[in-house]
């Protein structure tokens, strides 16, 4: 099979996919997104092969290069619609709720005044403020009183306008961990627990949260698959918390990192991704 891999940074994930593809004698066209000349008036040519795997670390680079490739007739995994929804926490929450997936109570506003009303009224003066785009736990703010909320919201108003889309969520009481489940197509291929980083309330392994193997089965598996399906058909990292009321899905990631799923989950994620590309390229 011939396929293209779009990247901006080469992480361990991209090296593992490349190695697995070379072991299968696949021809991989490695495309640095920063070297792409997205000339609307040029044809794409044949070098991209039958399908393209989008692996840009940057959400916006991934989104725009995928749009270009799709409009030029190339099939991209994950597709533009999935990237658009999964890359925005508000869009994701709406898709999850619409499809009946349990997810934390959420409100959005575009003004400090309404955000404070929501904070005090709906959330009882304890909530998490998240940027609608972004990841690795950056700029998540756990606000435990009104003065803290006022300060954080005011700071955000002086930042880039996207940070004034105030996406607020209940702070879910849970064990000091969450679950990352890896979905390829219509299957869950593995999962890990992600434990809080020392001295932190966040579980992102990008900020040193610890990972352990987690078996995804039964009700948890059903919820994970339903969450992925509500965004589209592709490759996902679904994040789940174990709340006092049961499982609740707080994120569905598109260009998913998987080094810890490979390391502690002992799952052949690169091989599963290549199998999926094969199926989708048919």
């Amino acid at each position: 099979m011939n396929f293209s891999l779009i990247f901006d940074n080469i992480r361990l994930e991209e090296k593992l996919i490349l190695k697995a593809a070379q072991d299968r004698n696949y021809k991989v066209n490695m495309v640095s997104v920063n070297s792409m000349n997205m000339d609307f008036d040029s044809s794409l040519g044949d070098s991209y092969g039958r399908i393209t795997l989008q692996r840009s670390t940057s959400y916006y680079r991934g989104l725009h290069s995928t749009a270009y490739l799709e409009y030029k007739g190339q099939k991209v995994v994950n597709d533009l619609q999935i990237q658009l929804i999964a890359g925005n926490k508000m869009f994701t929450s709406l898709a999850l709720m619409k499809n009946g997936v349990p997810t934390p109570r959420t409100s959005v506003s575009t003004s400090r005044e309404v955000a404070l009303e929501q904070f005090s009224g709906k959330f009882g003066e304890s909530a998490v403020l998240k940027p609608v785009t972004g990841s690795w736990g950056r700029m998540l703010a756990l606000m435990n009183d009104r003065a803290a909320a006022m300060a954080v919201l005011e700071d955000r108003e002086y930042m880039y306008p996207l940070y004034s889309i105030f996406y607020m969520q209940e702070y879910v009481k849970r064990p000091p961990r969450d679950i990352r489940a890896f979905v390829v197509g219509d299957r869950v291929i593995g999962g890990i627990y992600r434990y809080e980083a020392p001295g932190d309330w966040r579980t992102n392994t990008a900020i040193s949260g610890r990972a352990e193997k987690c078996k995804i089965e039964g009700e948890l598996e059903d919820i994970v698959l339903k969450a992925a399906k509500s965004i589209g058909y592709g490759i996902f990292g679904v994040d789940v918390m174990e709340s006092e009321k049961g499982y609740t899905v707080h994120e569905v990631n598109s260009t998913t990192e998987f080094k810890n799923t490979v390391r502690v989950g002992q799952v052949d994620v690169p091989g599963e991704i290549l199998n999926f590309l094969e199926e989708e390229a048919r």
Binding site: N9, Y59, G134
Partner: peptide, 25 residues
């Protein structure tokens, strides 16, 4: 540093980008 190019044994490096706000999964 980021490997900018590799051509017949010649390596070109450039300072790696700092992490940007939209990086991640």
């Amino acid at each position: 540093f980021e490997i900018q190019s590799l051509t017949s044994g010649h390596i070109s490096l450039r300072p790696a980008e700092a992490i940007k706000e939209d990086w991640g999964e």
